[in-house]
Design a protein around this nucleic acid. Sequence first.
DNA 1: ATACTATGTCGTATGTTTGCGACATAGTAG
DNA 2: CTACTATGTCGCAAACATACGACATAGTAT
Lengths: 116, 116
Amino acid sequence: MTYAKTVAFTAGQQQLARVAKALAHPARVAIIQLLASKQSCISGDIAAELPLARTTVTQHLQELKAVGLIRGEIDGLTVCYCLNTALLQQVQQQFAAFFGEATAGAPCAPGDACAC
Amino acid sequence: MTYAKTVAFTAGQQQLARVAKALAHPARVAIIQLLASKQSCISGDIAAELPLARTTVTQHLQELKAVGLIRGEIDGLTVCYCLNTALLQQVQQQFAAFFGEATAGAPCAPGDACAC
DNA sequence: ATACTATGTCGTATGTTTGCGACATAGTAG
DNA sequence: CTACTATGTCGCAAACATACGACATAGTAT
């Protein structure tokens, strides 16, 4: 992303945007859900469950790992991915606060003349 | 986005990803927050409050409008943007459910041997 | 050792996003 | 009507993202 003046956005806004970007692709949403549903933190089985090439899935996994939402541990030949519940909980708070703030105002239905 | 086989992702995953993408840029997060904080739904003042060119801000506004998170009404010379609280509330539920699912599992701390 | 399996990294083609100036449109005002 | 203001649309350049095959690495197994 090439923001002209990244400085001007708050850390909170940037963090929220970063996480949102990580979830901005159905494959990544699916991966998180998969990891959440399987009790065991599967590895490359993930690739088998998605409609994408193995390498593409690896890339998505790397991206999720870069943001910190998941963690991967090598176990012999296979690699074990699991959710970073700590970060997820923190992010959950962040989103809750954001949406709470956003949904607090008046409804402003279409045709309202929008009390400006 | 060029998914090879878009079909294979659920509607829920795609909807969540679409909204996440809308929030995947600090400027757009900032816009939502701005609209939430000002009681009046300001118009091009938004552009003045952000560290971006006016046209760029317009573009971000269009994107948010395309996803449906905000709505714009023409009021003479100015345009009035306001939050679509109905959609926001719905999306809030969606994210809450998603994160709830994701944070439900075991912590899986690093070094856990990751019970696979 | 040799063959095999699970993963990841690279390079690349194609498409998308971002940021912005130039230009078009549409009200307002004198 | 003419000048001015507020917005939006276009087109473009540069940066990213997506998807994937070819290749590298590193354990396992025989």
